[in-house]
Amino acid sequence: MAESTGSGGHTGHEELHGHDHHGHTGHAGHTGHARKATWGVAASATLHCLTGCAIGEVLGMVIGTALGWANVPTIVLAVVLAFFFGYALTLVGLRRAGVDWRKALRLALAADTLSILVMEIVDNGVMIAVPGAMEAGLTSGLFWGALAFALLVAFLVTTPVNKWIIGRGRGHAVVHAYHH
């Protein structure tokens, strides 16, 4: 993760995680404070989100395409699975950090919903815009090339969104407070 020096000599990583050299940690009660929103932190949060989305998106597109489904049901399945796997990755990390299920679910929904939503709108928009991509078979280079391109565009569009969200002390800035 890229780090930049913030005010008072603290790195972006330290400010993101809410602690300083005096041992003050930014867990639960400090999630409303603004975080240092560097491009590296935003890219890392987006990559985390993209991983879950890509798993769901690829699985949905593969299932829909293999079953010969039309575009709309295939996209619906891909979006549902993208949200499921996007939230699941965040939930796994929060549960490993000892956060109870109810709080972990609330945090995952708050941290990931906007990011996944933007990613899915862009990703599926690109897939629809590439002529023949949705109709191409699973053995087609067009299908896989368009899907890879769609995920790349989604990453590039969603990273500034995540930078803005993190800068407001929301999204993955909240979740990172629990990863210590």
Rank of each mutant, 00 (worst) to 15 (best):
L117H: 09
L81G: 00
I63C: 08
L77S: 07
C49D: 04
A37N: 05
R95K: 14
A34P: 09
G68N: 06
H24L: 06
Y87N: 00
A45D: 00
W69L: 15
T51I: 13
L67S: 12
L89C: 08
G93D: 14
C49P: 00
K36M: 13
L107Q: 00
A34H: 14
A28N: 00
R106L: 07
Y87L: 05
L67A: 15
W69E: 15
L47F: 03
L67M: 11
G32A: 10
H30V: 01
D100V: 12
H24N: 08
T74A: 15
H24M: 02
V79A: 13
D100C: 11
G32N: 03
L114T: 13
V118R: 00
M61D: 15
A70R: 15
G60S: 08
T46M: 02
E57M: 12
G32D: 09
H24E: 04
H24C: 04
A111F: 00
T31D: 07
F85K: 02
L77Y: 00
A108T: 10
A34L: 11
R106K: 11
G86D: 01
L59T: 14
G64N: 08
G93P: 05
L77H: 01
L59V: 15
V72D: 06
A82M: 10
T38I: 03
V92A: 07
T38D: 06
G26C: 05
G26L: 01
L107K: 01
A37W: 02
G56V: 02
L59Q: 06
H21I: 12
R106G: 04
G32W: 02
A88N: 06
D112E: 08
L50Y: 01
A110S: 14
H19D: 09
